[in-house]
Amino acid sequence: MRIGRITSILFLSVWFNQMAWGQDDNRIAHGKRVFERYCTLCHGEGLGADGAPMLPGTHAIYIKYRGEVPPLLQHRSDVNIELVKTVVRNGLASMPPFRQTEVTDSDLEAIVAWFDSVADE
């Protein structure tokens, strides 16, 4: 009886862990998808249009910090959810704000989870 209970607890623990891992993976994948839909036009990798060396947002960060900070957001270690929410909801310099109907707070948390997963790689 006791062994059975321990086995059940172990099983549930593994199951919950797997669920949590699965949820994290889903969340990270969702964050990446939202970032690609709304952010990469400006903050993505690669060349900008018409001879620009980077995409506009990536380039702006590169210029602002004189290359001392990684210009890609997912490579920065100082981008947390508070910073992301502040910038996304208020806009910054040339970047306009984005509404909840475009990216929800939960989407923003998923984006930061994706940032963190990239930083961990």
């Binding site: 400006c42 249009a49 506009p56 040339s94």
Partner: peptide, 13 residues
């Protein structure tokens, strides 16, 4: 679609 016009906006070197 893109933001090519941004070469006229934003920060410059």
């Amino acid at each position: 679609p893109g933001l090519g016009i941004w070469k006229n906006l934003g920060r410059t070197q």
